[in-house]
Design a protein around this nucleic acid. Structure first.
Lengths: 142, 142
DNA sequence: CTATAACTGAAAAATTTTTTCAATAACGAA
DNA sequence: TTCGTTATTGAAAAAATTTTTCAGTTATAG
């Protein structure tokens, strides 16, 4: 496992969760390529690392890893229900997604402060979070 | 039907679609309140306007209306699969969503030009679209 | 009013996601 | 290392969601 991914085991243990083969398999699949994948596809790929892995466990694992911010949902990509590894340490992450291959680039500088402040002023909403997905085509797919 | 919603019939006919009771019922439900609703809930409400409306037709109608930009998907709201009316004429619409009641306020000024340009420069992606959802609480729900 | 083509609802099928539960595996303590 | 506890797993089943099929209905142009 590369240095980049090293932190996840500690992250699980800190919270009282165990480091298991299914969890490792799912995470490794998502780390292997910077693309978003559906639970189904993750299952297919992760089974090559852990033969008996069930799809149910993939769902459960994704829910856990998402909660721990080790994995993130991608809405715009392949059919609105896919997942990608979280690679940055930023707490406010956004995604640039290739609509052809599903490649995901994370970024966090979004210059929305003024916009959000203005929204609050104008609507009276309290602003708690924002999610930005940018869709385009990566260099290879253009 | 209010002046605001008047355009939708023409919009359908232009494209060779028909103006039917089920379509009117779905659209009226979404126009009635500025909140996002699941297909199930839309069905429940729209049946009060058109008794025999089937859930299947709600799905079909939402797909059509979304394609015509009369209705928009909301990911952040109630469980990631809800819909709201499109109320503005802007082509680049974003949403401010109340996480308590599902209220949706549209906005279009997002000041992302620099960010998107920078993303293109940095990653080589061509940028085609972006989707922004802001989550908070509306004045009533605070 | 009529013809025609779009549209609809119901049933069924397909897909996706969650629940249940007995068996298994991870991990701290000895 | 071994053991005991407890989280975790996989399979089956259930539940929920979405799509397909098709015969009957309805909107609309003429």
């Amino acid at each position: 496992m590369s240095a980049l991914t090293a932190g996840w085991e500690g992250r699980l243990k800190e919270q009282g969760y165990r480091v298991t083969k299914p969890r490792r398999a799912v995470l490794e699949v998502l780390w292997a390529e910077p693309i978003c994948l559906t639970p189904e596809e993750i299952h297919r790929r992760a089974r090559q690392r852990h033969r008996t892995l069930g799809l149910v466990t993939v769902y459960r694992t994704l829910a856990l890893l998402e909660q721990l911010s080790l994995v993130q949902r991608v809405h715009t990509g392949a059919g609105c229900h896919s997942f990608a590894a979280v690679r940055s340490n930023e707490s406010h992450r956004h995604q640039l997604i290739c609509r052809t291959c599903g490649r995901v680039e994370e970024f966090s500088d979004c210059e929305l402060d003024n916009t959000l402040h203005g929204l609050h002023e104008r609507t009276g909403f309290s602003i708690e979070a924002h999610h930005l997905e940018v869709v385009g085509r990566c260099p290879q797919c253009q």
